[in-house]
Amino acid sequence: MPLELASRLDKIGRDELPRLLRDMPKCELHIHIEGSLEPELIFALAQRNGVALAYPSVEALRDAYAFTDLQSFLDIYYAGASVLLKEEDFFDMAMAYFRKAAADNVVHAELFFDPQTHTDRGVPFKTVIDGLTRASETAQRELGLSSALILCFLRHLSEEAALATLEEALPYRDQFIGVGLDSSERGHPPEKFARVFARCRELGLHLVAHAGEEGPAEYIETALDLLKVERIDHGVRCVEKPALVERLAAEQVPLTVCPLSNIKLCVFSSMDQHNIGALLEAGLKVTVNSDDPAYFGGYMNENFDAVFNGLPQLGPRHAYQLALNSIEASFASDEAKSAWVEKLDRVFADAG
Rank of each mutant, 00 (worst) to 15 (best):
C200M: 07
D182G: 14
E34D: 14
K264D: 02
R121Y: 01
E246K: 15
E16S: 15
A103W: 02
P171L: 08
R155D: 10
E251I: 00
A6F: 05
V58K: 12
E159R: 03
I263T: 13
D92S: 13
V58D: 03
R195V: 11
L74R: 07
V253W: 03
T256W: 07
G283T: 04
L3I: 05
F268E: 01
L20I: 05
K285S: 13
K343E: 15
H32K: 09
A162D: 07
L314A: 05
Y172Q: 06
V229A: 10
A66W: 00
I150M: 12
R186Q: 09
T133D: 15
E159T: 05
G352S: 12
F197M: 08
T287P: 06
D272I: 00
L41I: 12
R201G: 08
R134F: 01
F91A: 03
K241I: 11
V179I: 15
L166T: 09
F125P: 06
L84R: 05
E221I: 02
P39Y: 00
P259C: 06
I42T: 15
D92T: 14
G180V: 03
S7L: 11
K241S: 08
A81H: 10
F43K: 08
F67C: 05
S57L: 04
V128D: 07
A101S: 13
A46F: 11
E281Y: 01
R231V: 06
S269V: 00
A198V: 02
A306K: 08
A109N: 04
L166E: 05
L344F: 09
A60N: 06
L53Q: 06
R201I: 07
L314V: 11
L344P: 14
V51T: 14
E230H: 13
N301L: 03
C200P: 02
L21F: 09
P242Q: 01
K285F: 00
M95S: 04
L170R: 14
S7Y: 01
A66D: 13
G283Y: 04
F90R: 05
A223I: 01
G178I: 04
G187P: 10
A102R: 15
L151A: 05
K228W: 07
S290W: 06
V307M: 10
A148L: 10
F73T: 04
G315R: 06
G144H: 11
Y299C: 03
A44G: 03
L226Y: 00
G215T: 09
S261I: 02
A164G: 09
A211S: 12
N303F: 02
L53I: 09
